[in-house]
Amino acid sequence: MSRHHSGGCQCGAIRYRIEGGLDYPHLCHCRMCQKAAGNYFMPLGFAPGKMLSITRGEPGWFQSSDPVRRGFCRDCGTPLFFDTLQSDGMAVTLGSLDDPAAFPPVSQDGIETRVPFFAALGTLPGKNVDRDDLPGGLASIASTNHQHPDHDTEAWPREGKS
């Protein structure tokens, strides 16, 4: 019996399923991935062949270069897919998986454009944030959360919720 993994965007409009595992989970530091992720790097893992299926919605696509298009949610903007058009399969963004810890990165690619302070990020102090800058603090975020849960649902948004 094949283990599957699911994932999707923040708002739940796009959901996908991967039969089996992902190949080559890695962090890409290239400038194109930085811009596409709006972050210092993009974590990606490759779903070979026909292992990936989109189970809800239809992603938008941006042709970031002649050989590559990137899939995203048109509603919330979550980056989801990296599709090398000549490849037999497609990569997913590891952070869009319901269990992003299931595929720890094995490599860092595009290190020629990695931000110079990347190696020092793990040495920064960490803290839990109370969010006292928001009326009601963290409780106000939890009680008004519109984010899709980290599992498949029959429908989304939930009836009576937007």
Score class of each variant (00 low, 15 high):
S2L: 11
S2N: 07
H4Q: 15
G8M: 02
G8E: 04
C11H: 02
G12K: 15
G12Y: 10
I14D: 11
R15G: 04
Y16W: 02
R17T: 12
R17E: 14
I18C: 06
D23H: 12
Y24D: 13
Y24H: 14
Y24S: 14
H26R: 14
H26T: 10
L27I: 08
C28V: 05
C30Q: 01
R31H: 13
C33Q: 08
A37C: 11
G38A: 00
N39A: 15
Y40G: 14
P43Q: 09
P43W: 11
G45S: 04
G49A: 06
K50R: 15
L52E: 05
I54E: 00
T55N: 12
R56L: 07
R56S: 06
R56F: 02
G57H: 11
E58H: 11
P59I: 06
G60V: 02
W61Y: 03
W61I: 01
F62T: 05
D66S: 09
D66I: 07
D66F: 06
V68N: 07
R69N: 10
G71Q: 13
C73A: 10
C73H: 05
C76N: 02
C76S: 02
G77P: 07
P79K: 06
L80E: 02
L80V: 00
F81C: 08
T84R: 13
T84G: 06
T84P: 10
T84M: 13
Q86E: 14
Q86L: 13
D88K: 06
G89F: 08
T93N: 14
L94H: 09
G95F: 01
S96D: 04
D99C: 05
A101K: 13
A102H: 12
P105F: 08
Q108F: 13
Q108R: 14
D109Q: 09
G110E: 08
I111E: 14
I111H: 06
T113E: 13
R114M: 14
F117P: 07
A120V: 09
L121W: 09
G122Q: 08
G122L: 09
T123Y: 09
P125I: 03
K127T: 09
N128C: 03
V129K: 15
D130T: 11
R131D: 04
R131E: 05
D133W: 02
G136A: 01
G137I: 00
G137L: 01
G137C: 00
G137K: 01
L138D: 02
L138Q: 03
A139Q: 05
A139K: 04
S140G: 03
A142L: 15
A142N: 15
S143R: 13
T144K: 00
T144M: 00
D150N: 15
D150R: 15
H151I: 11
H151T: 10
A155M: 11
E159A: 14
S162T: 15
S162F: 12
S162C: 08
